[in-house]
């Protein structure tokens, strides 16, 4: 139980950390957004895992179902996914405009151009 039971959580933490690492370490603006997505997805997984009840089925009302998973986290994550999509698309749109304005999407090159200005 100890390790295997927490297995999903380990995966979540690994995803979370790699996502955050990509956000911080990557120089490319698009890759940063990919990192942000990985990071957010790890949180989605966290919520979904939380709702799982051992032995439970999908939360559908039927006669022979007595044990079912908690549906609330799933619903919450639907919202969070929408927010995540919005963020990603806005971020990508910004990257497109940055590319138009600077001619590059590398962070250090942008900084260089700003310093010159």
């Amino acid at each position: 139980m100890e390790f295997s039971g927490l297995f999903v959580y380990w995966i979540i933490v690994a995803l979370m950390m790699s996502g955050l690492y990509i956000v911080i370490a990557q120089n490319n603006l698009v890759k940063k957004i990919v990192g942000l997505n990985v990071f957010q997805v790890s949180v989605f997984l966290l919520y979904i895992t939380m709702g799982k009840v051992t032995g439970g089925t999908a939360p559908i009302l039927a006669d022979n179902i007595t044990v079912y998973s908690n549906p609330l986290p799933h619903v919450l994550i639907l919202t969070a996914i929408v927010v995540g999509v919005a963020t990603t698309s806005l971020g990508l749109a910004l990257v497109v405009r940055i590319h138009e304005a600077y001619g590059t999407i590398e962070d250090d090159e942008i900084l260089e151009q700003d310093d010159d200005a």
Partner: peptide, 21 residues
């Protein structure tokens, strides 16, 4: 303004995600 918005987006999203965690 574009790069400022982009950086704010990254930081803000990280902050908000921390919050939901």
């Amino acid at each position: 303004g574009l790069t400022a918005a982009y950086r704010y987006l990254i930081m803000g999203t990280v902050g908000a995600t921390f919050y939901i965690i």
